[in-house]
Nucleic acid binder design. Structure first.
Lengths: 230, 230
DNA sequence: GCGTTCCTATGAACTGTTTCACAGCCGGAA
DNA sequence: TTCCGGCTGTGAAACAGTTCATAGGAACGC
C-alpha cells in the first residue's frame, strides 16, 4: 500500500477485490477534493464528467422540482460511491448531491472510469450490485409513497436514518445529522409543518427527543409500529 | 446466425455487441418460455434464479403493498430485459412482473448469467447503462409523486405510454393496451375513481377518446400542458 | 451589542383526493 | 338465455395534508 489515497480506496467496498497494481493505477487516476458543509457537489441537469467516491463526511442526494422544491432520496456516508448514473448513460446529472458536513472525496474522470470498467469485470459486477441496491431502494420509496401516510413515512425515515447513520447507546439511538424539518419533509414528501406536528407529538409521548442537530430515538418499537401503519 | 433464438437475441440491445460465437453460447444457455395474457412471471419476494429477455408481448412491473394494493412501475415491450436486480444482489425478487398480453421470453439461468457478465465486459457495461436508465426512471417517478397532482401525473403517464407503446396515426396516437382504470391508478398513485373522473373530463373536452382496450390521444399539446401543471 | 436571516412552532382555513355507496354495463360461464 | 363477476360511471361526505398567517428562538455577521 503506497499512499493514503490508495489505502482509502482499498477500503471502499466496490474496489475491494482489486489487485494491488490495479488499485495503484486507479489511485493515480483519482484526485482528492474537499468540500465544506452545505456545498453542492453535482447539480441535476449538469453535464457529467466525473465519478465520485465519498471518503469522509455525509452527503444528501436530492432532485429539484421546477419551482425550487426538493425531493430527497438518500443520505450517503463514507465508502459510498455516486455520480455513476450520468457517467454510464451519458446523459445529464440525474440528481443533485449536496454535502451535509465537511466532506472529502476521490474524483475519477469519466474516461478513466470507463477504462476501469472495461478492463476489470469484477468492478463492473460490483457496480452492478450497487445499482441494483439503488433500484431496490427507489422502488421501496415509491411503494412507501403509495401505501403509507405521512406519520408512517416519517417514522420509517427516522428508523432508516437510525440504522444507517445513527449510533446506538443502550436502547436509544442517536442520529447526529443536521437536517432541518424542511429536509425531513423533502425525504418523505410532506411539508415542513406536517413534519413538525408529528415530531412534536412523538416528543410529547416520549418516542423521540430532539435537540439541535441531534435526534434521539427512545422507543424503537413504537416507531416501528407507526412505520407499518398499525 | 444459427437458429431463431440466436437471431432474436442478437436483436436485443444489450446483446448487440456480442461476437457470433458468444451469442451462440448464450442462446445455448437460454431457453424459451411462453406465457398467456395476465400470468405472473416473477413475484416480489420469491427466490430469484433467472434472468429474462422479453422477446414478444408486453409485461407490467409492479410491487404489492401488504393489503394487496398495487403500485405499478413500468410497462416493458419486446427487446427489454428484466429480473436482473435480484440476480445481481442475491436477494429476493424486488417486484412482480405480469404479462399484459401473450408473451414469449428467453430465460437465462442465474449461473450462466453471472458467467456471461464476468467474461464479457461489454455486456456488463451495457447492463450498467440499462440499470442507470431504470434509476433515472424511478427518480423521475418519485419526483412526479412529490411535485405533480393527480391530473398531471395521469397526463404524463398517458404521454409516456403514447411514446413508448403507442402507434401514431396523423396527429393522434393510439395506445392499444388493455389496462383497467384501476391499473392506471396503480401507475400514478391514485384511486380508480380519480382516474375515471379525469379521463371522463378529458373525453368530454376531446383531449382523448377511449373505447375498450384502446385509448386514443387527440390533443397531445393539451395533455402536455396538463402534465406540466399549467 | 444589534439586526438579519433561517429555523421551529402552532392553529385555522382550505382543498385535492379518497372513501363510500350505488347503478349500469359488458363478457364469459353454465 | 340468465346469472355472475369484474370494470366503468358518478355524486356526496369525510379526511389527510397543505396553505396561510403569525410568533418566537437560535445563529451568524458586523
Amino acid at each position: 500500500m503506497a499512499d493514503a489515497l490508495t489505502e482509502s480506496l482499498s477500503r471502499v467496498w466496490i474496489f475491494g477485490g482489486l489487485a494491488e497494481d490495479e488499485l495503484a493505477r486507479l489511485s493515480d487516476l483519482a484526485r482528492i477534493k474537499a468540500y465544506k458543509a452545505r456545498e453542492t457537489i453535482v447539480e441535476k441537469g449538469d453535464e457529467a464528467n466525473e465519478f465520485f467516491v465519498l471518503l469522509r463526511g455525509r452527503a444528501k442526494v436530492s432532485t429539484q422540482g421546477s419551482d425550487g422544491a426538493d425531493a430527497a432520496i438518500n443520505v450517503m456516508g463514507p465508502g459510498e460511491v455516486f455520480g455513476e448514473v450520468a457517467i454510464l448513460d451519458g446523459r445529464p446529472r440525474s440528481a443533485t448531491v449536496t454535502t451535509l458536513e465537511e466532506c472529502e472525496l476521490a474524483v475519477v474522470d469519466k474516461r478513466a472510469f470507463h477504462d476501469l470498467l472495461a478492463s476489470s469485470p469484477p468492478i463492473a459486477v460490483k457496480l452492478l450490485a450497487v445499482l441494483a441496491g439503488r433500484i431496490r431502494d427507489l422502488t421501496t420509496r415509491l411503494e412507501d409513497r403509495a401505501f403509507l401516510d405521512v406519520p408512517a413515512r416519517l417514522a420509517k425515515q427516522l428508523l432508516w436514518l437510525a440504522t444507517n447513520h445513527g449510533t446506538e447507546s443502550g436502547s436509544r439511538v442517536r442520529i447526529e445529522l443536521k437536517l432541518s424539518q424542511q429536509e425531513f419533509g423533502d425525504f418523505i414528501g410532506a411539508t415542513r409543518e406536517s413534519v413538525n406536528k408529528h415530531l412534536r407529538d412523538w416528543t410529547r409521548s416520549d418516542l423521540i427527543k430532539h435537540e439541535r442537530d441531534c435526534l434521539e430515538i427512545l422507543d424503537l418499537d413504537a416507531l416501528r409500529a407507526i412505520a407499518e401503519n398499525r
